[in-house]
Each structure stands twice: as structure tokens, then as C-alpha cells.
Design a binder for these strands. Structure first.
Length: 204
DNA sequence: TTCTCGATTGTCT
DNA sequence: GACAATCGAGAAA
């Protein structure tokens, strides 16, 4: 069975639990063609208490404004000047929690993803890594603050259940500057799934 | 296969 | 003016 996640799903204040439950869900975009994939890797960013979060200590700027909105919208951020990272904003208004989607397993529209990535044949590099995944799905900063209950970008529950023992929690990547918070095990991946990122530097 | 390093630009101090 | 929630090419082994 297939059903689009509704607004109430995103309003939970337990961003860590939400990150786990997003594993096995399907991220779908309809941007110049329909593409989708099963989410296999997420990271939780717990707003004000999390040094790795852009909105740490409730730092509100033009860039982080979407994080303070009510859950259920996208937050797409340009990193290193060239990579678009896709996040899901969660929790009620004024609580800047977000979940970074780091990798998906391609399901529909693989041809379109290949074209967007300028690749000739599918490989594990197609959607592993937040920058690559966003590019494959056609996401860019143009889609920042998009309502995830509309028909442009949304997340579906297709009845896939991921058991507790197939979820590995580990430390987040690329946030060393966050000091002690960099050690928090708030990155979640599906055990044994070849589409997850992070094989580099042997961090798993 | 594994690791090092450069690219490139918006945002904040 | 410094730096960043990364990627991918190319070197080394």
C-alpha cells in the first residue's frame, strides 16, 4: 500500500525518532519527470541544542529561516558553493529541527536520474551522498521551502518496515567543526544496503 | 583499493 | 575575509 505522509507526521518533536522512521520510506519528486527512491540514510539535526545544525542556539538568518517554519517543508541548502543538500524540516513552528536525507535507493525514473547526473549507466554513485542524491532527483535551491504535502516533492509510506536491528546509528559526516556534538550517533543507515554513502574513509 | 587534495560560491563575522 | 551538513579526480600502494 502506498500513502503520502501528511502534515502531522512532520510535527513530531522527537527528530531523532523521526529520522529512524524515515528509513524505508520513499522520496518522490515530480520535477520535469517523476523520480523516486527509498530512503536508506538520514541524519538528524536537532536545532538549538545541536552545534552541527545551522540554527544552533536559535541562530536565525535569511538562510536558516525555513528551519523555524512548521514541519513538512523542504530546506535545501547550497554547500561548498556547488552541492545542493536536501533536508526535511520537522517539529512545530519556531523549533528548528531538520533531517538531512543523505542517500536513497533509486526506484522510479532511473533514466531521468542518469541524465541529470550526466551518467551513462547506473552505479552506486548515482544517489549515494547528499549532493549527488539531490542532483539525481532534480532538487536545487529553487525548491527550498517547498510544501511536502503538495505534488512537487513528497514522501510516501509504501508499507516497507525496517526492523530495529537493521538500523545502524553512527556519527555524522563532515561536521567535525561541531566539536563534541560531532560524536552524537544521529546518522542512521539501513544495514547492508549498498546504496548508502560513507564508504569513504572507512567510517562504517 | 584507499587516501589526499582542489573546486567554487553563498553566508556570516 | 574565512569557511562550509561534499564530490570526484588522480596519486600511491
Amino acid at each position: 500500500m502506498t500513502c503520502k505522509l501528511d502534515k502531522s507526521f512532520y510535527l513530531d518533536e522527537d527528530v531523532v525518532a523521526l529520522s529512524r522512521s524515515l528509513l524505508g520510506k520513499y522520496l518522490v519528486t515530480k520535477i520535469d519527470g517523476l523520480t523516486s527512491g527509498m530512503i536508506v540514510e538520514t541524519e538528524a539535526y536537532k536545532g538549538a541544542e545541536d552545534r552541527a545544525c545551522h540554527a544552533y542556539a536559535n541562530l536565525r538568518t535569511a538562510r536558516t529561516a525555513p528551519l523555524f517554519e512548521e514541519g513538512g517543508i523542504s530546506y535545501i541548502y547550497l554547500c561548498y558553493g556547488l552541492h545542493h543538500l536536501f533536508n526535511v524540516v520537522t517539529a512545530p513552528k519556531e523549533v528548528p529541527h531538520a533531517i538531512l536525507i543523505r542517500a536513497i535507493e533509486p526506484v522510479e525514473g532511473v533514466e531521468i536520474m542518469l541524465k541529470r547526473r550526466k551518467m551513462l549507466s547506473p552505479s552506486y554513485k548515482l544517489t549515494s551522498g547528499p549532493g549527488s542524491m539531490s542532483q539525481a532527483l532534480g532538487l536545487s535551491v529553487l525548491h527550498n521551502q517547498t510544501d511536502l504535502t503538495k505534488d512537487l516533492i513528497w514522501i510516501e509510506d509504501r508499507g516497507v518496515k525496517i526492523s530495529e536491528e537493521s538500523i545502524i546509528s553512527t556519527t555524522r559526516v563532515g561536521v567535525e567543526y561541531a566539536k563534541e556534538d560531532a560524536l552524537l550517533p544521529w546518522r542512521f543507515i539501513i544495514r547492508g544496503n549498498p546504496w548508502v554513502s560513507g564508504y569513504r574513509k572507512g567510517k562504517i
